[in-house]
């Protein structure tokens, strides 16, 4: 498991190569990348600022990955989440999951993203022509997390 919280951009290909380097037992790698959209709350967005809670963020992400590893037979997990100022089109978050078979890799990646949305302490502020506005949490995200309850 490897978790990074950083301002720098990331290279998906390089991260995937690092995850599978020297291994021939991995059958599936699923990759999710979140990007900054140019629309938010029905208005054009010119910039986004991502704030986080240093210390708790890394702890929360590690706990989410540990939970995924307890539920699925994962051979490797990589999570990168950026913070600071980000322009539309920029990469925000990367989740890679590796497993012998695709179903576990798909499900684990989705699980990690659903939990990350509601449990990792990040907050987005979107800037448009009329100023900045904090993004409201979405009920759909709570519902997405709830479907993994057991």
């Amino acid at each position: 498991m490897s978790v990074s919280v950083q301002t720098e951009d990331f290279d998906i290909g390089a991260e995937m190569a690092a995850l599978t380097h020297g291994r021939t037992d991995i059958g599936a790698v699923v990759s999710f990348t979140g990007l900054v959209r140019d629309m938010g709350g029905g208005r054009p967005i010119t910039a986004m600022e991502l704030e986080h809670y240093p210390g708790m963020t890394e702890r929360a992400l590690s706990a989410i990955v540990a939970e995924a590893e307890a539920r699925w037979p994962l051979q490797g997990v990589r999570v990168i989440h950026r913070f600071g100022p980000l322009a539309p089109g920029a990469q925000i978050v990367l989740v890679l999951t590796a497993s012998p078979h695709r179903q576990a890799a798909f499900e684990a990646a989705e699980f990690i993203m659903d939990y990350l949305k509601t449990r990792a302490p990040f907050w987005k502020k979107e800037t448009g022509a009329d100023g900045g506005a904090w993004v409201d949490a979405r009920e759909e995200d709570d519902a997405a997390e709830a479907r993994w309850a057991r």
Binding site: G34, L50, H52, Y53, M56, H81, I92, V93, M113, L116, K117, T118, R119, A120, P121, F122, W123, K124, W134, V135, D136, A137
Partner: peptide, 10 residues
């Protein structure tokens, strides 16, 4: 102790 709105990362 930290106070914040619901999280909106990802």
């Amino acid at each position: 102790i930290a106070f914040f709105p619901p999280m909106t990362g990802g």
